[in-house]
Design a protein around this nucleic acid. Sequence first.
DNA 1: TTGTGGCAGTAACAAAGGTTACATTTCGAA
DNA 2: TTCGAAATGTAACCTTTGTTACTGCCACAA
Lengths: 210, 210
Amino acid sequence: MLNNLKDNFSHLFEDALLEEINNVGTLKEVKEGDKLIEIGDYVRSMPLLISGAIKILREDDNGDELLLYFLERGDTCAMTLTCCLGQKKSEIRAMAELDTILIMVPIQKMEEWMGKYKSWRNFVLQSYHERLTEMLETIDSIAFLNMDERLVKYLQNKQKITKDTIINSTHQEIAYELNTSRVVISRLLKKLENLGEIELFRNSIKIISL
Amino acid sequence: MLNNLKDNFSHLFEDALLEEINNVGTLKEVKEGDKLIEIGDYVRSMPLLISGAIKILREDDNGDELLLYFLERGDTCAMTLTCCLGQKKSEIRAMAELDTILIMVPIQKMEEWMGKYKSWRNFVLQSYHERLTEMLETIDSIAFLNMDERLVKYLQNKQKITKDTIINSTHQEIAYELNTSRVVISRLLKKLENLGEIELFRNSIKIISL
DNA sequence: TTGTGGCAGTAACAAAGGTTACATTTCGAA
DNA sequence: TTCGAAATGTAACCTTTGTTACTGCCACAA
């Protein structure tokens, strides 16, 4: 685990902190599609992402869903941070977008390190900043963009995260994450295909140029 | 200023910290409608709200606007925190919703206090948590609610912030903050009036029961 | 091989929200 | 007092998005 840590976090944390994380953290591997946190769960440890990607989703009372953002290598979950500190229930759902490796750190440590390590404080604050920025981008999308533009952004984002021009999603799955209906997505995807920007297959979409 | 501080922050900060804030902070009064921060500004100090209310707005490239949330007594601006630390430009606009009194703390101090005072750390983290939560609520509204429901929420919120059943806004102003058009707001307000939930006047709206 | 369930294509229609246009009212400044 | 700008009311129409319904297609298991 120490190697994993050094590879991904040595530019952020001093050796003493890396050592501590190595001592108290536990390595966790999850498969694509696995659920990490459900809305209402209490959170007892904080994830540091080594590899893979996690998607963070919001859901309303009717079960309508919305993709908020992705976490990647070197990230942590800002929601978790506050849940830990405040002993509050999770407001979001976290699912593995890809096969993912993370280090789980017990919550007591995170407070202790806040006083002890400047690099840890910066990391935590930086994480908050990134998450707030991503929330702003999400708000921009749903407030200012039409569904066709949101869809294009979604596909671009997905490509960036998976590093693959083939997106393995059904229209229904995309519709859930954008909180719309399958028919709408099919309609817009077909339009993009007619423009030559994507190619449609069963269970997958190939990005030509977006 | 020390009295202001003690009245509003003594339950959060230890005496030594209150003392420090008192030494380095400057009192600032702004009038309703004053602009505090514009998008693109560099932020050099951090506000602690003593009284009044600040509204935080987002704008896109076309000048379309959206109200994100309000800051009240005891709050600080999480955006500012990260802007300060990262030396980044502001992503948002801040306007005084009411006459407001705040204490401005220079940014160098905030880092110093992070290491020195546990109560400061908790305050900063707590602020982030509240802001993230409010961003989530904003997302819920625009993603899951129709305009009529968003309008009702907006009016309720406004009432809560101003502690007044009379809302002094034009339809155009409301339309800006909800990123829609004046005609749409007039239409929906008239519907609410017909339901007996509000009463409409020139430049103001009286809330009967929402 | 055949049936079954999930996936995608598409048409027709409905609803919400945005746009344009114009009339009326109100208020403050000249 | 009068004029003009700003605020509001309202109709007609358009666009976007959501809904319903039905089709064919594909993959897999019985």
